[in-house]
Design a protein around this nucleic acid. Structure first.
Length: 267
DNA sequence: AATTGCTACAACCGCAAGTCC
DNA sequence: TGGACTTGCGGTTGTAGCAAT
């Protein structure tokens, strides 16, 4: 069999646009299907990841607020490395983002906290073992230069928007806008904007549980709020605000696959 | 100015759970 | 009911950019 070549590595802008288009068309569930019909030489998995972590319109970008930071600390101490679960409590943040943030920033904070709370007993001195094998990541952290991420009043644009030259460099510096502390509906809960393909009755216990703490009323209120205000969305949407109508116009040119009989099914 | 080490984050991998037939 | 397939999750890696030396 001739196996089709699978692309890996950084996504190009064109791939992003294409993925956004097809997700709008088919919803954000059937990733293998999307990967196939879109003509992207990516796996469904890869498409999903790109969407969830980068392209989803509900994504909040920019620095974690102190509120979010505190929340992460609290929830992590409660749940451990259940990143997706923690992410559900921070609308607009992804599990990946939180995971990364934890590793680079909060591990130390958590450890300090823990030490402050418990008497200084025998603290293991394995500071070099910042290895990822450690169970819950309360690692002793060697004395390092600490950037004051706590007192960033303003919002710094992530370097990826400013100076990354490869994948996302062409995206706009949307993070220069102030980050609003809004709580949008976590996209993990929704299965995306289009739920036509979403499996029914799949609401897990965790979500229900989380709703006890963060009620749907709150969530929808927040959505209203964030819709009225100018929500910061993922870059591709800022970059191509008129993406959808543009797509309609361009689709036949840009994505020949759209004319496939396949689309008759979905349309 | 060049080098080195660190930070930030996108993306991949493997596994487990869920769904479909 | 069980096997194949898909999706979701957590862990890990790769790399660009920046600051310190």
């Amino acid at each position: 069999m001739v196996q089709e070549e699978i692309r890996k590595g950084p996504w190009t802008e064109h791939e992003d646009v294409q993925l956004v288009f097809y997700v709008n068309l088919f919803g954000d569930r059937r990733w293998d299907f999307i990967a196939k019909v879109s003509g992207l030489k990516r796996t469904g998995k890869s498409c999903r990841l790109r969407w969830v972590n980068y392209l989803h319109p509900g994504l909040k970008r920019g620095k974690m607020t102190t509120h979010e930071e505190r929340l992460v600390l609290e929830l992590h101490s409660k749940w451990g490395n259940r990143w997706s679960r923690i992410a559900r409590k921070l609308p607009g943040r992804t599990d990946n983002e939180i995971k990364n943030y934890w590793r680079t920033h909060l591990r130390k904070k958590a450890q300090e906290r823990k030490q402050a709370m418990s008497p200084p007993s025998s603290i293991s001195n394995s500071s070099s073992s910042a290895s990822s094998n450690a169970p819950v990541d309360y690692m002793p952290v060697a004395e390092t230069k600490e950037r004051s991420f706590y007192d960033t009043g303003g919002v710094l644009a992530p370097s990826s928007w400013i100076s990354r030259s490869s994948t996302s460099s062409n995206n706009p510096p949307m993070d220069l806008m102030p980050v609003m502390e809004t709580k949008g509906r976590s996209f993990y809960d929704t299965g995306g904007d289009l739920e036509i393909f979403a499996p029914k009755g799949k609401k897990d216990k965790e979500v229900e549980e989380s709703e006890k703490v963060y009620s749907m009323d709150d969530i929808w209120k927040d959505i209203d709020l964030s819709e009225n205000c100018q929500t910061i969305t993922s870059p591709i949407w800022n970059y191509c605000p008129d993406l959808l109508w543009m797509m309609e116009e361009e689709e036949s040119k840009m994505f020949p696959a759209i004319n496939d009989p396949f689309f008759a099914l979905a349309g």
